[in-house]
Each structure stands twice: as C-alpha cells, then as structure tokens.
Design a protein around this nucleic acid. Structure first.
Lengths: 251, 251
DNA sequence: CGGTCCTTTGACACAGGTCAAGTAATGTGG
DNA sequence: CCACATTACTTGACCTGTGTCAAAGGACCG
C-alpha cells in the first residue's frame, strides 16, 4: 500500500500589500521563536526578509512538497503543524519530524528536497524563494549564524531520535514522544501539560518506528498505570511527569 | 589488521615549530576534505585557524571526551577513525556516527558535549579551543558558511539513519551500512570497494540498532548468497553492488 | 602457550508485527 | 436531521524477526 500522493494544492495569498504593517515585527508573520531565524535582526535586515516572503495556506492533509522535487522554496510554519517523512520504495514510511510554528522546512544544500512534507491540520506557512534567501544569507552573517544554531539544535534532536529508534522499547518510545511534545510546546510558548496530539496513531507509529497497534497498546498500558489520562482523543494529561521521565531515560 | 598501531608520535611542541611550513596548506594537517571546514579560506584566514590549533594523538580504544563533559575543545579527525555514541542509564548504547579524517567532532551550542567519543584505532586529531574558534567564526563568515553546509549534510545523513533504524530489516540495515561506508570512503578519497571495517560487530550492532549476533548472521547470509565476500576479517568485498543497493532501498 | 577478545552458530524466548473484528467519531449527501 | 460511508482507535489471537543465552573456535598478545 504505497501511499501515492497527489500534486501539492496550495493557494498563494496576495498579501504583498500589508507587509508594511509588519515591518517592525515581521516575525509576527514568520512566527518568531527562540529557534526561529528572524530574531535578532535589525530593522533593515528584517525588511529585506519580509520583502521576499509570501504567506501560504495549506489545507489539512495536503502535501507541501515531495522528496526529490526541485527545492525552489524554503518555508517557515506560522500556524498549524506539519509532518516531514521519507519513504522506502515499498511504501514503508519514516516520519523524521513534526514541525510547529517557528520551525523551518525545505532547507537543503542540494537541488532537491530531502524529504516530503504534509500539513497535519489547516496550516499557514511563510514561503521564501530559495535563491533570494541564499543571496540574503551571504549578505547577512547574523542570519546565517542563526541558521547554524538551529541546525545544530536539530542535529542534537536527531541523535536523541536515533537512540530512541535504535535502543528503546515501545513503551519508552511513546513516553519519550509525549515528553518531547510537551517540551516542544513549552519552548514554543504553549502549555506543556495537557499535551495536544495533532497527529494520528499511525503517524506516531511512523515517527517512533512502531505499528499503530503497538502505539495504541502503549497508551492503554500507560492509562492503566495511571501515568497518563486521555481527556479528549487528541489531548493527553501527564499525571506523573517524573515517573514518565524515568521511563523515557531507561531507568 | 587494525589500522596503524605504531604511528609516529610527534609532540604538540614539535608541531608548533613547523606551522610556518604548513601555512600555504594548513589543511594538510587538518585533513581537508570536501566537507571539511578549512577549504576555501584565504591564506590569512588559514593562518588564524592554524594559530589556535594543536595536534593530539589518541591510542586505540581511548575516550576523547564524554557526554556531559564541559565542551572546551572542538576536534577534527586527521588520521584513524572515531565512534561517537550516547548511553541510556542502564547501559544500552547507540552509536550515532563513525567519523573519519576530515570530520569534526565536539561542535555544540551548549555548555557540554552532546555525546561521548572514542578512538577506534590509533587516531590523530586537530584540537581547537572552543572559545577561540567561536571568536574566529564571528570574524569569518566563510567558515561559518562551511560549517552550515556540513551541518546540513549531517542532518540529511541523520534522517537516512532514522529510516534505517525505524523501518529497515536487519539485513537491509547491514547492507545499507556497507554501502554507506563505501560511499564515505570514496568521498574521503579512499577506495570504495573492498570496504574496510575498523569497528567490531558489537559496534556495528550499536550503530544499527541490532545485537552483535544478528549482525554476524546477516554477514553470513550475505556471504552465502554470494553478495559479499570477507577477505580479511576487517575487509569486505561487495560482489554485486547493484543487488546490494536494491536491498538497501527496500525493493 | 595460556588468556583475552572477537566472531560464529545453535536453541529458545519474547516483544512487537500482522491480521482481523468491533466500536467510536466524523463527515457527507439526500 | 438522519442514513451511510469513511476514517480513526482499540483489543484480541496468532506469528515471526530479532534478542538472549550458551558454547565453541580463531586470532592475537604478552
């Protein structure tokens, strides 16, 4: 069952006009966050970024781009959530990340994208033409520094994911995932305890290297042990964060 | 035969004196490679790099630094090979990378190292004091650009490793590993076909998320199918690279 | 030449995958 | 507003790939 994807369907807003409204804080649009790129730029630099930027709306479950497409744009999530993934030729899928407001996608040093990207729910993005962004980079070391910091942060996260995928049990993976989502929410300025889960069990499985059934069973087990509590189907309360942290780190 | 046991050991002081000899090509010392950082620097910039650099020798199986140590130096491999890994509290280990001449280790944006590093065989490193290197970075955007390129390359590799760990079978993992080593050897200017394996089965297992027995069984199976051939215990010939590539990508 | 480490191989156990059935939640068209 | 379809989730029964444990051989070393 190789999930054959249709072509990207997104509408580009004609938003050029009110860019000027955002000049002082362009990153209100571009979702400024601790790890976002536009913080710490001077007004002139911000203006140059905003000038090459367009806002894009994506409907739920629509592709944003596919692996091996020509990499013409770089995106920044402003609202909603995105999953990025790679496929093996027989359809096996590995989700390599879930992205939230402030996160970049589509950065690459090759001609083509290194992964596919799809919106989880209704999502807004900032879109930068790649060659223009790269020209800006050369002229703005501070932006480049920022990107390096983000890349190094992502690299650390990728290594955590490797130990999860290579060495953790199903339960440890699910617990690690919940804590990771919680931490990420806090970093992005959202509440960290009732954790919201904008993705399906299947997506979680493809992120954690598990089947959807195993993810579901892990949830049930954690519920039974009183460690978590499902409020709404897409909302989990972490009852004993410390106990969960111990499970996640392998005690 | 484990690589170069009796490597000539020159002291740090001795190196200092003939820095001037290296000024035109300082990266002979610092192992210049396509993904290395010192390429494309002008002579003045190269000199400034060399001035803060020291050469270090590490014996086989000796630690270089440990996760959570204060990150005081950044290293570049010049000879030999290094493994970097993370541990869970009960001792489970995930090797997150094998590094060869030209590769950097110890780069982080935190106070402490994000992983432990250990020499596989006798190994030579270039060592840069971290704060001096960071000061240089601010002054040399070209170097920063180079690092960003390397980080983005490593990020892509990390995502390949995620699909390997999350979704590939034992046999697919081992084959992917052999091909990866072969490609890496070619990129680093060494022969790509008889692949040399400077690490133990145990190390391979900890890199691939498998037990050492499963790695061994996969080798036997590949031998039986005539796809590979063990020359020396640390040297594999890839008999049918195309067939191997198909296995690795999940056909 | 005995000790240590690495590798291979076999026997067996088990975590997690697969298949299947049933239910709940959500959306859709009449 | 209600049939109906669709998608998501849970749970059970069973199967299998890989881990674990154990033993034995080989290479290297002091």
């Amino acid at each position: 069952m190789p999930p054959t994807k249709n072509a990207p369907r997104f509408s580009v807003d004609a938003q050029k006009h009110h860019h000027s409204l955002h000049l002082v804080h362009p990153c209100d649009t571009c979702a400024v966050r601790p790890y976002s790129a536009c913080a710490a730029l001077n007004p002139d630099e911000q203006k140059r970024l905003v000038d090459i930027m367009k806002t894009v709306d994506i409907e739920a479950h629509q592709p944003i781009f596919n692996e091996f497409d020509k990499a013409q744009h770089v995106f920044n999530v402003t609202e909603g959530a995105v999953k990025i993934y790679k496929l093996l030729s027989d359809g096996r899928r590995q989700i390599t990340g879930f992205l939230f407001p402030g996160d970049f996608l589509g950065l690459t040093h090759n001609e083509t994208y290194a992964y596919s990207a799809e919106a989880l729910g209704a999502t807004k993005l900032c879109r930068f033409p790649r060659e223009k962004l790269e020209a800006l980079l050369d002229a703005m070391p501070s932006l480049e520094q920022r990107l390096l910091g983000m890349a190094s942060h992502e690299l650390a996260a990728a290594q955590d994911q490797m130990i999860l995928l290579g060495r953790k049990s199903a339960k440890e993976r699910v617990v690690s995932f919940l804590l990771m989502l919680s931490n990420s929410a806090v970093r992005h300025g959202r509440p960290g305890n009732p954790v919201s889960l904008p993705m399906t069990r299947n997506d979680m499985g493809d992120y954690l290297g598990l089947s959807l059934e195993t993810v579901s069973r892990a949830f049930t087990q954690l519920k039974t042990q009183g460690l978590i509590q499902l409020l709404d189907e897409r909302q989990v309360r972490l009852n004993k964060p410390d106990a969960l942290r111990e499970i996640a780190t392998g005690f």
